[in-house]
């Protein structure tokens, strides 16, 4: 199973994301933002970092990169796509996910281990979890405050589009404690916390993040 990991100028966590894919049993494939080549991958991960230095808005310029046009086209046909942190910002800017990520309400960069509740266990990226399950993975962001109009948030919650929620403390002021959302078809998922940093006991607070990467191996097979 080939899982692409896109590197943009300023990506930081592409190597960790590729490592998480490998530990989950997949084959990581390095993808370059300026190519028009998805290299026949079965799913794509957009990693964390500060693509284009967060200039204009976080993720805004990366969302217009050449490869992102291919990602958007294929995602609309069902290709599983996971956006982590900056990758989540890119997916919102690209219009694949609703809402937007803005400056943390307290204006501080927040870096800590974060408890989450998995709300959806039937997306391409969360099938290995149980709904209601509590997981702990790192969060680290300065612009992670999820926002949308009240009507939009009502609609998203009504459609079950919230995938993970912050519990035991909201690190950035995200509305309704939303940490991650999914597309209508459950194939595209974005979240601010970092599952790829919680895949080994040696380096993470848990191995709770591995489930995102094992989930997609099943999802890609069934696609």
């Amino acid at each position: 199973m080939r899982i692409g990991v896109i590197t943009f100028p300023g990506s930081l966590d592409d190597v960790d994301a590729a490592r998480a894919v490998r530990l989950a049993g997949g084959e990581p494939v390095a993808l370059w933002h300026a190519d028009h080549d998805l290299k026949d991958v079965d799913a794509v991960v957009l990693p964390g970092g500060f693509s284009y230095g967060d200039y204009l808005r976080a993720g805004a310029i990366a969302a217009r990169a050449p490869l992102m046009q291919d990602v958007v086209d294929r995602a609309r046909q069902g290709l599983p796509v996971l956006g982590i942190c900056n990758g989540f910002q890119v997916l919102c800017e690209a219009g694949l996910l609703p809402g937007a990520l803005t400056r943390n309400s307290h204006l501080h960069f927040r870096n800590r281990d974060q408890a989450l509740r998995v709300e959806r266990d039937d997306t391409a990226w969360t099938d290995s979890y149980d709904a209601g399950q509590r997981i702990v993975i790192p969060v680290k962001n300065g612009e992670g405050r999820y926002v949308g109009s009240p009507q939009e948030l009502d609609r998203l919650e009504g459609e079950g589009r919230v995938v993970v929620r912050y519990v035991e403390g909201n690190p950035n002021g995200s509305l309704r404690d939303i940490a991650g959302v999914t597309s209508e078809n459950g194939r595209v998922v974005g979240l601010m916390p970092h599952p790829e940093h919680a895949v080994e006991d040696l380096t993470g607070p848990s191995t709770d993040g591995l489930g995102f990467f094992t989930s997609v191996l099943k999802a890609a097979v069934s696609a």
């Binding site: 204009l56 808005r57 805004a60 217009r64 919102c92 800017e93 609703p98 809402g99 937007a100 803005t102 926002v147 949308g148």
Partner: peptide, 8 residues
């Protein structure tokens, strides 16, 4: 489409 994000 680029300078502003119409969502926010």
């Amino acid at each position: 489409t680029l300078l502003a994000n119409p969502v926010i």
